[in-house]
Design a protein around this nucleic acid. Structure first.
Length: 569
DNA sequence: GCCGTTTTCGGCCCGACTGTTTTCAGTCG
């Protein structure tokens, strides 16, 4: 049973209780427990050890229900509730403007069980006849029903970062001096691996005009709402972007508020309240007096906390650390001196060695490692030993021509199904840098194969360690404790692959690695020039895992990297 | 349903917007 299964059932439970009109605080208790469980490493392990109750927000009643779930795959109380709710309750509740109260009314009075049922009663006018329903409410639900078909459920952080940059650049170009500061907010700013909508915050004294302008952005295909403080649009009928407009004196408070996460904000405001403050999107207040709001820093400082980097704001201990002035100094994009995993036309990359080196130099790196595929990965034009050694020679010649940049001759060598590597030690010994990755036979004991690869003295990094593809493929099942123990023992780094659909290791595993002292390597795995900026996604993911500069080998100057390699060979 | 440096009972984050309403309920973030 994975964390996600447990989180899903608790969220469903909360939806059902809300539908049934249970007390909001009870509903919220289920949701809060779900959030907290999504952050633990392995909830099933906690259950086996009888430590479920250690998770914040999980008390006696939930321990009992989850115990049922682990033992039988069901929760009796939930099954009983489900006998008396619409068949497609969870789909129905995901429709905007159609909340639990309305759903309950439509179910009770009209027998609405499915999205199609809802569509029917909207069309024939029966929904409009219910008490409290007027023509505008029905029209809004009708609009939401259309979006239910097309709207994307989640957006990758890579896509979101590009969209947000485009929107901000366009507004800056077209709004002139109407706007001041402008920033991403929400989960994009926190570098969450997938986001539901994209939030942008802008400082202005003329919100109405700026939001009107925003609705003119060329990719807007639908305007969902536009007022003086908030505009909401759909780009290409798929991506929802919300713009919030606030005056300078509340820009910081709004930025704090709209960055979230919700769990972080709830806890922060609880603490503020206990200290006699009130925080909202306009500022921080002591009694009636506003004592801050212009800057985000001021909000945290007023509570005697250090400013908390957005990537940490998940209520995973960052609030307590900020209060103790013990937050880590996180890795930054500027700390990165090299990209240690990129491909050329020798395997499946789109650029030649010379082109790739030019691009890396323009990004300001001091060195890089070329790591093309090895021979077993035939679908990616993997190189046999002959071609590899020719490529190494070409790199040596190129290095001789450069004084300010170094290319490490490397390989992304496959970890074969029996745990052996795709090149012999004699060949690996001629390389400057070795990434080892699993690309096949995911079910054949990936833990043992990964550890076997780490035991090889020439392997520096394990590439995309879990093999997951976000929203497409679960990673293979790795025993992370054993892998990290071996990484520590053999002096092998684990990759934080920055490709938008990998982000592997993920934030939770990065945190675990950092806490154990395992080194990381944040790389793009670039196959094309347009992949190089994804370094920011890997850095964001590493920051979400509390990684510092000293945890990441490609922040080292080259001579330090070489000393690190030497110690571990 | 959870939880305790205000509480083992009685609180639980806060506000905007919308639409339907003669003072508020529902939804959302």
């Amino acid at each position: 049973m994975k964390n996600k299964d447990v989180v899903d059932i608790l969220l469903k439970f909360a939806d059902v209780l809300e539908f049934k009109g249970e007390a909001p605080f009870k509903v919220n208790a289920y949701r809060r427990a779900a959030w907290n469980i999504s952050d633990v490493e392995d909830v099933e392990k906690l259950w086996r050890e009888g430590r479920l109750g250690d998770v914040p927000g999980v008390g006696k009643a939930l321990v009992e229900k989850l115990d049922q779930f682990f033992r039988t795959g069901h929760i009796r109380q939930l099954d009983e509730h489900l006998e008396n709710v619409p068949k497609d309750l969870f789909d129905l509740l995901s429709i905007q403007n159609f909340g639990p109260k309305t759903a309950a009314l439509a179910y009770k009075e009209l027998g609405v069980e499915t999205v199609d049922d809802l569509r029917a009663v909207v069309e024939d006018g029966r929904l409009a006849n219910l008490p409290g329903m007027g023509p505008k409410k029905v029209a809004n639900i009708k609009k939401s029903l259309e979006l239910f078909e097309t709207a994307q459920k989640s957006i990758s952080i890579g896509m979101a970062v590009e969209i947000v940059a485009e929107v901000i650049a366009w507004l800056q170009e077209n709004a002139g001096d109407k706007i001041g500061r402008i920033s991403p907010a929400g989960s994009v700013r926190r570098y969450k691996e997938t986001v539901h909508d994209i939030d942008v915050l802008v400082e202005t004294n003329d919100g109405e005009a700026v939001i009107e302008l925003f609705t003119q952005f060329p990719k807007v295909t639908r305007v969902l709402g536009a007022g003086a403080t908030k505009g909401s649009v759909l780009l290409d009928d798929r991506f929802q972007v919300d713009l919030r407009a606030v005056p300078a004196e509340s820009y910081g408070a709004a930025r704090q508020y709209f960055t979230g996460s919700k769990a972080h904000n709830v806890k922060l405001r609880e603490i503020a309240k206990k200290q006699g403050f009130k925080i909202n999107e306009y500022g921080i207040f002591k009694g009636e007096a506003k004592i801050g709001g212009e800057s985000e820093e001021r909000i945290y400082h007023a509570l005697d906390m250090d400013w908390i980097p957005p990537e940490l704001r998940e209520d995973r201990g960052e609030i307590e650390a900020a209060a103790e002035h013990a937050l880590p100094e996180l890795l930054t994009l500027d700390d990165i001196r090299a990209d240690l995993h990129a491909h050329t036309t020798n395997s499946d990359g789109q650029h030649t060695l010379e082109e790739l080196v030019g691009m890396m130099r323009r990004r300001g790196y001091a060195y890089m490692a070329v790591c093309d595929h090895s021979k077993s990965v035939f679908y990616a034009n993997g190189m046999d030993e002959g071609r590899l050694l020719e490529a190494v020679e070409a790199i040596r010649r190129l290095n001789a021509e450069m004084s300010d940049f170094t290319v490490l001759a490397g390989a992304e060598v496959d970890i074969l199904s029996d745990g052996a590597l795709d090149y012999s030690d004699d060949v690996l010994a001629q390389l400057d840098f070795v990434v080892a990755s699993i690309h096949s036979a995911f079910k054949q004991d990936p833990t043992a194969r990964t550890i076997a690869a780490m035991e090889n003295r020439y392997v520096d990094v394990i590439g995309h360690p879990t093999g997951r593809l976000i929203s497409r493929r679960e990673g293979f099942v790795l025993d992370m404790d054993r892998v990290m123990e071996a990484a520590l023992r053999t002096g092998t780094a684990l990759e934080v692959n920055s490709f938008w659909d990998r982000l592997d290791l993920n934030d939770v595993n990065v945190r675990k690695a950092v806490s154990k002292g395992v080194k990381l390597s944040v790389n793009t795995d670039a196959h094309h020039q347009r992949h190089l900026p994804m370094m920011a996604l890997g850095v964001g993911t590493a920051r979400r895992g509390w990684a510092r500069k000293q945890d990441v080998i490609n922040t080292f100057p080259l001579d330090e990297l070489r000393r690190w390699q030497k110690r571990n060979r």
